[in-house]
């Protein structure tokens, strides 16, 4: 099994100008070791003082961010092309973290969702809109609760009442997370 590894220009000072590497690594930690073995001068630059791979270095497999593929647990396949790219600025990467994917249900703006009469209710309107998420997961004290906020639409047009409801919910709303796929 062989994979092709493409190295960025920024590495070339430490690779004698080499831009590519053929590797038989099975997974990412092995590949990093392979890169370090092939280009020993890179080792002290790839890793920080803590011995960990620097946070600005990203790995992509066949156009996909390896973090979306399972990161260290992804098993390379024959013919995979691995691209190594330092972040242009600083995407600080938690290499062991699960990758959340925003997958919020998008609601079409139509008369049913946004009745015209509500569009003229002043402050109440925007406040009402803020609660117009279909479902939100609220994590609190380690417990994740799915709340259907649409239930509040009925009182959404009463501006003052809405304000108090919003304030009361503030603490919970602050912990809103997008759905995790």
């Amino acid at each position: 099994m062989a994979i092709r590894v493409l190295l960025p220009n920024a590495f070339q000072k430490h690779t004698n100008g080499e831009r590519e590497l053929a590797s038989s690594a099975a997974h990412l930690p092995q590949l990093i070791e392979d890169i370090e073995t092939s280009f020993p001068a890179l080792k002290s630059h790839i890793r920080g003082e803590d011995g960990q791979v620097r946070r600005f270095i990203n790995f992509y497999v066949n156009e996909e961010d390896i973090r979306f593929l399972g990161n260290d647990s992804y098993t390379f396949k024959d013919g995979d092309e691995v691209l190594v790219i330092p972040s242009i600025a600083g995407a600080w990467i938690a290499r062991s973290a699960a990758v959340p994917t925003a997958d919020v249900k998008n609601v079409d703006v139509d008369k049913e969702v946004m009745p015209k009469r509500n569009r003229r209710r002043g402050a109440g309107f925007l406040l009402w809109q803020f609660l117009d998420h279909s479902e939100l997961q609220i994590a609190e004290n380690g417990v994740t609760t799915t709340v259907t906020l649409r239930a509040f639409i009925g009182i959404g047009t009463a501006g003052l009442l809405m304000s108090s409801v919003t304030t009361a919910m503030d603490a919970k709303l602050c912990t809103m997370q997008p759905h995790v796929a």
Binding site: R55, D65, W92, I93, A94, T101, A102, V104
Partner: peptide, 10 residues
């Protein structure tokens, strides 16, 4: 203190 990348849908 880090950014977890997302697949955009907006």
């Amino acid at each position: 203190d880090h950014i977890d990348p997302q697949r955009p849908n907006t």
